[in-house]
Design a protein around this nucleic acid. Structure first.
Lengths: 349, 349
DNA sequence: ATTAGCACTCCGATACATTGAGTGCTAACA
DNA sequence: TGTTAGCACTCAATGTATCGGAGTGCTAAT
């Protein structure tokens, strides 16, 4: 089942040629490769073998060979070499990320820009899912006779709020009491814990509940917590696919763009992916509309806990080595950036 | 300079045929129109005149005629008839908008969805620019030893906030004093007024300023005000253009999508447009990349003051009558929705 | 003023020949 | 026995020629 040294070399050459040119590569071209000192005929034999084994395909009889998904998988697993970025590139990238360091979301957005610019693919970035963010402080503030503002502050520095229309008259004392009770009950809990353990039951016996205040406030509190879990999806380089030969077919381009326009679904797909750098190639993607794409995602961490994602999507024919190396560098950089800031002064909204 | 009755009829027929079929329309076809009982030859003469006057073009010698931008302009100004929506359509649309009435932004987003679904064009919706929103209440809340939350509430119900890292130690009294001073100074002012009249000078002599507190707070206050002016752009039906013959050319489709991906620029263009229903046709658009598109925007009002926009963009060949009627209905509906709520419980973020 | 008639133009579809890159196979070779 | 040269074959892509049809513009008749 193992491939001979020579077959591997040939396969690698085919992949790298094809990735570069997008044209099926033939035996003649390959025999000119410096690493492959064999005649076209020999290479043809090997290619026939490789095709039988499922690593290559044939668009039609008189065309060269094209790597299959299986070939790319082998390449990514075993043959691909990381392409370390040059010192200059690293500096430029780091600068660009740092240039917007005060604004959390901007930094993420820039990461996506960089990714699409360098790879010439479509990239995206997902802000962290705050499931594990810890509640710190809850307050209720009087505004009007019938309006109260609920404010929630979390460890990561996120501040959320909501104006609540009160059905029941309230007093400042009651508000304060409820704020304190809520803070006492929820402080130190993660958002997901707060959402699953509805502590409203505890209030039942309390004077606050008697006043009906909690009935007005708690549903809004829960909704606001849910809102806090929302993530933002940034996308860059959408039109890059028009320059990729694979998508010179209008129908294909349409499907691609249509898929990427479904932001909610896309977000869901991305969140579900495992941590670390994950490469899924062509048919490995569960999704029908992604059967001829490769998707690469990487996760970054804020404060070592909250997990966000960046990624690229493009044709299966892509420079896996370069892309993954770049993504590795980017996530490392993001991890560091968000570690130093360490829950500092982030931006709301 | 005026066009004869007959010429007008012919032009109208050409436009309506061309809008429907996207094919150049010839004299034969026209002579079969029930309204036009003339022979092809007669119609040809008239068409030649219309072409000379700039209302028609000729893709090539042996092709039918195509309306020019000038023709569309005439059509929109003088010939187009509003197409009242049916009672059922109105009900369905109103229901869809109401279904999300509690969430301001969702309502806007739905308006865009409806617009693109019915017109089969690309649509967008812009949340209102809050320049004229009036400040109501400003508060500073202690969180940490070195963290304070700034909270701003406006008449429209929008609540904004920002966590501030304090460089100077503060006391609760100082915070309260500063909150009160700020509220006193800014309450009743619009956001744009607050942004232009920097009242920080007034504080100079005040004890609060002495403590250095204001220096920490004011820049953040200003930044937050600016953030409050940010608008959101929703876009729907981006891929609809792939079904439009005009964009079966890959290059054109690319340019179109690329233009719409530049969200900031697009937002700026849209905001700048006058109120009411505005139609700009082809070359009337200042922008190079929009020379063969028509853009229709309409404004809706929240509380009669804040102005948001909805719109569609597509090929100059579009059903102006139907689209503008629909947009009129939508904006009327939005105006009412946001009037009844009257600064009620809107959503932050 | 309108229209029938006709020559003319030009696009688009169809058919056909040509080219060239590449294959698979066989037989010769080291 | 593995490698290679040679050769017939395949097939997409390209170019060329032809033809039909839709539509025009002009002229002459009504």
């Amino acid at each position: 089942m193992d491939l001979s040294e020579r077959k591997l070399k040939i396969l690698q050459a085919i992949i790298s040629d094809y990735v570069r040119t997008a044209e099926p590569v033939g035996s003649r071209t390959l025999s000119k490769h410096p690493e492959l000192g064999f005649s076209p005929a020999t290479i043809r034999n090997e290619m026939a073998d490789l095709e039988e084994m499922g690593y290559l395909t044939h668009p039609h009889t008189s065309a060269g060979r094209v790597p299959s998904d299986k070939a790319y998988r082998l390449y990514v697993n075993a043959m691909m070499e990381k392409k370390e970025l040059s010192r200059e590139e690293k500096i430029v990238i780091a600068e660009r990320l740092k240039g917007s360091a005060t604004e959390f979301e901007k930094t993420i957005e820039h990461a996506a820009s960089i990714l699409s610019e360098i790879t010439n693919l479509t990239s995206f970035a997902l802000t962290p899912k705050k499931t594990e963010d810890v509640l710190k402080y809850i307050n209720l503030l009087p505004v009007d006779e019938d309006t109260v503002v609920l404010m929630i502050v979390s460890e990561s520095g996120k501040v959320s709020n909501k104006a609540i229309q009160m059905n029941v008259p309230y007093t400042d004392e009651n508000l304060q009491l409820l704020s304190k009770t809520m803070t006492y009950n929820y402080k130190g809990k993660t958002i997901s814990q707060a959402l699953t353990n509805n502590i409203i039951a505890n209030f039942e016996t309390d004077i606050v509940a008697m006043s009906g205040l909690a009935e007005d406030v708690m549903p809004n509190f829960m909704r606001t917590l849910e809102d806090m879990l929302n993530v933002n999806l940034y996308m860059e380089g959408l039109t890059n696919i028009f320059d990729i030969p694979e998508y010179s077919d209008l129908e294909k381009a349409k499907n691609f763009i249509h898929m990427l326009s479904q932001k909610e679904e896309l977000t869901k797909k991305l969140i579900e992916r495992d941590d670390g750098i994950i490469v899924t190639i062509g048919e490995e993607n569960a999704d029908d509309v992604m059967q001829d794409c490769s998707l690469i995602t990487a996760s970054y961490h804020v404060d070592g806990r909250l997990v966000g994602k960046i990624g690229v999507i493009g044709p299966t024919r892509m420079k896996y080595g370069e892309v993954t190396s770049l993504m590795e560098f980017l996530t490392d950089n993001l991890n560091n950036t968000f570690k130093l800031e360490s829950g500092g002064n982030e931006d709301d909204e």
